[in-house]
Design a protein around this nucleic acid. Structure first.
Lengths: 119, 119
DNA sequence: CTGCATCCCACATGATACTG
DNA sequence: CAGTATCATGTGGGATGCAG
């Protein structure tokens, strides 16, 4: 099968890690939260509520590493200030990601019902 | 923030497990493969190449449980025959999923380059 | 051919405490 | 405020063998 100029599973091996990132526990949530506007560390943390400090750091570092999120430090401020924002690349991900989330939102009732029906 | 009639992260807790499913190691690949046409167990296994028997079974069971994939047994055949196909619900997932995969395919070069740039 | 059961380990994640 | 370090733990997933 073909996906653009990619074959499955041939070169598809390269997109699998990307999809894994999308599917990890926090990445999607953080991208959607940052899609509103740039935000500070603890601001994100409050919005995600039950994310641990560790996982927020790790997720942001991963996104930064892939060039989806940019990190900017305002060291002169008091208290110190670190702001995260989506890069241009990160912005392009928002649309398809949002579409997928909408699918999930629209169908979660059905899926939960299906899953519950089984013994 | 709002997502359709869902809030993040409030009810979003319900869509997170769905996104996790999408992001797991094999689900996306299998859905895309089945989007071509219904296929048999070992047919899928050959196309995914390096999936273990165990994980293929587990992934298909999960998808079946959620009502995304239907399993049909042809017991009278020789050798026995089990066919998997996407349900109508499963079909509706293909489009947004495909969009996401295309994003990944288009940007995997950039992302790999970004990730490699760091020490 | 299409599975299920068991063993096992690496890794992802959470909890907690400490730092600049 | 924005992290880092360490320890504990659950689970994803491979290997293997058996079964209908």
């Amino acid at each position: 099968m073909k996906l653009g100029n990619m074959s499955v599973p041939g070169e598809c091996a390269r997109i699998t890690p990307i999809l894994s990132r999308v599917g990890d526990k926090w990445t999607v949530l953080i991208i959607l939260i940052l899609s509103e506007r740039p935000k500070r560390f603890n601001q994100i943390r409050r919005e995600v509520e039950d994310i641990s400090q560790r996982m927020l750091t790790m997720t942001l570092r991963g996104l930064e590493r892939d060039g989806l999120v940019a990190r900017k430090v305002y060291a002169d401020k008091n208290p110190p200030w670190v702001e995260y924002r989506l890069t241009d690349l990160g912005q392009t991900l928002v649309k398809p990601l949002f579409a997928l989330c909408e699918w999930a939102a629209e169908n979660c009732d059905t899926i939960e019902a299906n899953a519950a029906r089984e013994t």
